[in-house]
Design a protein around this nucleic acid. Structure first.
Lengths: 247, 247
DNA sequence: CAGTTTTCTGCAATTTCATGCAAAAAAATT
DNA sequence: AATTTTTTTGCATGAAATTGCAGAAAACTG
């Protein structure tokens, strides 16, 4: 059995049962537990499953019960503070989901008049709390692992929008561009970038100069990048050369 | 059972009951009390629960003066418990929003396979937490007052569905039928009733035999009504005459 | 205050994990 | 087809995690 096959099998089992034990998989597939462990680690690195002592859990399981505290919440709050001034009255704004975006939504001034489009349930929920913001939810089918709407419905609706700004939380960026690892999410993000006049990406510094398997866009499609670091940090030199504003 | 699973189970129990005893958990999960205690300590360290002598309390319960309590939460939980058995595997279910529905969503067994359609952001959010439930969000424009999707988009999408069940939280019901006071919400509810084979209405007893300004539907379109009271209560006599099952 | 229950501590048995290494398998190259 | 390079796998080792248990300490009850 090929490695890829095996990992596909593991993913399917986790989808089916929401949990699996390394020892069970080992006897089922007839490989050593070490191999299983390595597979599980790889899948966990790709954010496809949650690895725990003794086996692994599906991501939806995790999000439901174990939602832990937000990773690097302080950094994310800092980033959120830097985004808010970019948002002006009467703008049409496309956003993704993610904890940084949620943080931003909470910081929006209550007298702000704007229209927000999002496919993320938590984000929509947050926007809906604000008195003067109009919220449009994009898409119908909700992907559980990412809690956002995915699929053709979402994409085509995004295509019908001409937004002023796209504010996107990202998972990895390096000199080749922005990358991610969930195919469905990427389709949505690509469409969002196309539909917006300007694109702002939000990322904690830890993710800068890392990359993942699937490409979202090149650096030339990004207008602004915001991290928790000072814009003068040398980390950003190469991005500035590509004409990206660092905040 | 994996440690992580066990802790998830504990958290869920605490969410549900607001308090639990170490000894109960020990016999339920079949591990030593020491293990439970260690779990509770870990969860308390993570600030997810409040550990007390003999067991633990839910954090939201303990710091409840911060959160707005749900009105008649106990009644609503009772209602929710009565709804759950109506939901079977592979059903297509339309639901509204509202605190009772949210409560129901939390009680859905984790092995339930079903597809839920809703226009309510909080409800969609809750459904999305479940491992085996597919969530379809209806509509795009979100009405802030009710936190649900309203307007033509929502209505037309509902029209395209043939659901097994419509589960609807209502604000008023009397012998003339179900009434409400938000015109946009009513359009959505009407469409939902049309699109479902059977309609179940949920209401706290306080709202029975009251009415509001705008009509949603007559009693003949209702199949089942659920309140927190015993079905034999004389309050329901006239509804039974209209062929409505009381639970 | 006496008796019961719960908690804490240290400990031992078991399981699971990470790491380095060498053999095997697969892929790429000549 | 043969050979080199890369990837993958299994195993051994020691480290770390998990769990249950015993006995002392602490908390609770009436």
């Amino acid at each position: 059995m090929l490695k890829t096959e095996r990992q596909a099998y593991i993913l399917r089992q986790i989808d089916l049962h929401n949990r699996i034990l390394s020892s069970d998989l080992s006897t089922e597939i007839n490989v050593s537990e070490d191999t299983i462990r390595r597979d599980l680690n790889e899948l966990a690195d790709m954010d496809k499953i949650i690895k725990v002592h003794g086996g692994a859990l599906s991501k939806s399981f995790h999000s439901s019960f174990l939602k832990s505290d937000v990773y690097k919440a302080d950094s994310k709050r800092l980033i959120a503070q830097k985004v808010v001034p970019l948002i002006r009255n009467n703008m049409f704004i496309l956003t993704t989901g993610g904890t940084t975006i949620i943080e931003m939504a909470r910081l929006l001034p209550s007298d702000l008049n704007a229209t927000f489009f999002t496919g993320s349930i938590p984000a929509a929920h947050e926007y809906a709390q604000h008195p003067n913001i109009e919220v449009i939810f994009l898409g119908d089918k909700i992907s559980k692992s990412s809690q956002i709407a995915v699929g053709g419905e979402a994409i085509s609706k995004i295509g019908g929008i001409k937004a002023d700004l796209c504010i996107m939380g990202i998972n990895a960026i390096d000199e080749t561009g922005v990358t991610d690892n969930d195919w469905e999410v990427i389709q949505v993000k690509k469409a969002m970038i196309q539909a917006a006049e300007k694109t702002v990406v939000l990322s904690i510094a830890e993710k800068v100069n890392t990359h993942q398997k699937l490409m979202i866009c090149g650096l030339d499609e990004i207008d602004t990048m915001i991290t928790e670091l000072d814009p003068s940090n040398p980390l950003f030199e190469s991005y500035k050369k590509h004409g990206i504003t660092i905040l």
